[in-house]
Design a protein around this nucleic acid. Structure first.
Ligand code: MN
Ligand code: MN
Ligand code: MN
Ligand code: MN
Lengths: 219, 219
DNA sequence: AAATATTTTTAGACATGTCTAAAAATATTT
DNA sequence: AAATATTTTTAGACATGTCTAAAAATATTT
């Protein structure tokens, strides 16, 4: 129905839109798509002709309902495939993204529905991100940055802000994986680094940079 | 590495080559690819420049070792995905081909190796076709057409010649699926239709047209 | 408010893969 | 062997998505 490239543009615009709330400008799309502003303008015109987004020259774009639907379907496929790769094929959580970038463009409703069922209708992907349902509804859980928790507070590691392989590998190596419980022991007033207790046993010291990229579910 | 289209051309030429043994001409490739002869000539030149096939104007083509390697890898991916769809996601054997046509182009060696392992290193796909190994080796089992068996002979349904959805659905409906044992009870001299015994219980009458498209393994 | 900087768009080009129509080469018939 | 039919290639065009360089519009600084 829609091309590989069109789906990627819609997904990128959708994600920028979720963050900013405002109209998305040409340069930020170019950044997200690793392409040039001129190419973005060309593609924007095409997507606008297809009524997938609203475009006013020099004013940026925002997705129509139709465009948003395709973006969310693509996100759903991406996260279901990541879940498959992690849970069934034993890919590590830092290895799933690149392959899912390809798999998310396979066109078959039956395939995705059956995959969803086969995986037991998972609610979250290997990075803790929510998987949109068939109906396009995304259940958002309220999470806090580990760096925003006060001393003595505790919770469960439930997501990451940074999705880079390097960061994911760092977390893996230090046991800071999804589902582990943490408690804030001490916050260093100088560099804002944090001493935490992991699973009520192990003590770990992490930088503020790391703490700002871990999402915690508190009671 | 190679485009979706290049892989499809190489796979098509490979299959034509397996059947005929001779140089493959432009029109037969056009037929297999559902495109025009002019387009085939264009693509052939590109594949020839890339040393994936040998081309002499007006004399047809044949794959180089490099081209054959890519073709076989694509067949391997196609058949592994068909097996996954059938055995894990409960697709029927007539439903797997079209989706596998897309999935076969996903580029990731790790993915295919892990999928192979996850499926238990299957030797054959849902249509009885052999799955090439990592090394590119295809283990060919000698099979006979059901229409070539004499009265009294028996064997196991092990493959199909025609892969059309209509034929596969017909076989499914009549219980003529892979692994079932059959015995030739009687061959009608007039229309060459065959009376067979299925799994030593059920009697079925099939046309010569059907018998010519079922492959049997005999002891 | 004018000058300057930044962002966005336009113009024109290129790569990939496709097509139709015409030309050229090869195969078949007489 | 010449005439005719078939197959293949060439020429030129088009769609998709990308690019660089220049022009135009908008935003920021003075
Ligand atoms: Mn991802
Ligand atoms: Mn993810
Ligand atoms: Mn198939
Ligand atoms: Mn098959």
């Amino acid at each position: 129905m829609y091309s590989y490239t069109e789906e990627n543009y819609l997904k990128a615009i959708y994600k920028l839109q979720e963050q900013s709330g405002e109209a998305i400008n040409t340069n930020s799309i170019a950044g997200a798509m690793a392409t040039k502003a001129a190419s973005v303008t060309d593609m924007i015109k095409k997507l606008s002709d297809k009524k997938l987004l609203k475009y006013q020259k020099y004013k940026g774009v925002h997705l129509t309902d139709a465009g948003k639907k395709i973006a969310i379907e693509t996100v759903r496929k991406h996260r279901l495939w990541e879940t498959f790769l992690h849970h069934k094929l034993n890919f590590l959580w830092d290895e799933v993204h690149d392959v899912a970038e390809q798999l998310e463009h396979i066109q078959s409703e039956a395939l995705i529905d059956k995959l969803d069922e086969y995986l037991g209708f998972p609610s979250h992907d290997p990075h803790g991100d929510p998987i949109p349902g068939r109906n396009g509804i995304i259940k958002v859980t309220k999470l806090l940055l580990l760096s925003d928790l006060e001393t003595g507070k505790h919770g469960i590691i439930s997501g990451v802000v940074n999705h880079s392989r390097l960061f994911l590998q760092y977390l893996q190596k230090n046991g800071l994986t999804l589902g582990r419980s943490i408690k804030i022991l001490e916050i260093n007033a100088f560099d804002l680094s944090v001493q935490i207790e992991l699973d009520k046993v192990k003590k770990i010291h992490i930088s503020n940079e790391v703490a700002r990229n871990i999402l915690i579910k508190t009671k």
